[in-house]
Computed example of a mutant assay.
Amino acid sequence: MTSKILCPTDGSDHATTGVLLAAEFAKATGAHLTICAVNIAHGGMRGPTISHWRPEEVQKLLADAEALAKAEGATDVGTLEVVAREAAPAIIAYAEQNGYTHIVMGTGDKRGLQRLVLGSVAGEVASRAHCTVTIAR
């Protein structure tokens, strides 16, 4: 049974599709929905760690996604920022460590060589997560 839904977003159109679907699932099941932004960290070791997004960018991205989810009828919605070097392992680890029962995320329409070369966060999450994963297009 779905009781906690995690929905990663980066603010893209594909991610917005995931937020809309996650909100629909949350509304239908009464599940808690957490929208997260994985802020990729670069650097470190000998220099400072630099996050991809500035704090105000993360706040706006999450506020926009939360407002969208609530407009779709989800009532129990929270947000969070996860800072990590790679998105997929961070999403998987956070979901497992915090008892999420469902991950919903959007993905682009990558096919063939482009998908092979670029990889797919959604594909990695779907293949490695401990819980149900729904990929929205």
Rank of each mutant, 00 (worst) to 15 (best):
T2G: 00
T2R: 13
K4L: 06
I5D: 02
L6N: 10
C7E: 10
C7H: 06
P8G: 03
D10E: 06
D13A: 15
D13H: 11
A15R: 08
G18L: 05
G18V: 06
V19R: 12
L20F: 12
L21W: 04
A22P: 06
E24V: 04
A26T: 01
A26P: 00
A26I: 02
A26H: 03
T29D: 00
T29H: 01
G30H: 11
G30E: 14
A31M: 08
H32D: 13
L33C: 04
T34R: 05
I35M: 03
C36F: 07
C36I: 14
I40D: 03
A41E: 15
A41K: 10
H42T: 14
G43K: 11
G44M: 10
R46S: 13
P48T: 14
I50V: 15
S51I: 00
H52P: 00
W53G: 05
P55G: 09
E56C: 00
K60I: 08
K60P: 01
K60S: 14
A63I: 01
D64Q: 14
E66G: 03
A67R: 12
L68V: 10
A69Q: 06
A71K: 12
E72G: 07
G73K: 02
G78E: 13
V82C: 04
V83K: 08
V83Q: 13
V83M: 07
E86G: 01
A88E: 11
P89A: 11
A90T: 04
A90K: 00
A90P: 08
A90E: 02
I92N: 08
I92V: 15
Y94M: 12
A95M: 09
A95D: 04
E96V: 03
Q97N: 14
Q97V: 04
N98Q: 02
Y100W: 06
Y100P: 01
T101I: 03
H102L: 15
I103C: 11
G106C: 09
G106R: 07
T107C: 01
K110T: 13
R111E: 02
L113W: 01
Q114G: 02
Q114L: 12
R115Y: 08
G119S: 09
V121L: 02
G123E: 07
V125D: 03
A126L: 09
S127R: 14
A129H: 04
H130E: 09
C131W: 09
T132Q: 12
V133N: 08
V133I: 09
T134Q: 07
I135R: 10
A136M: 09
A136R: 01
R137D: 02
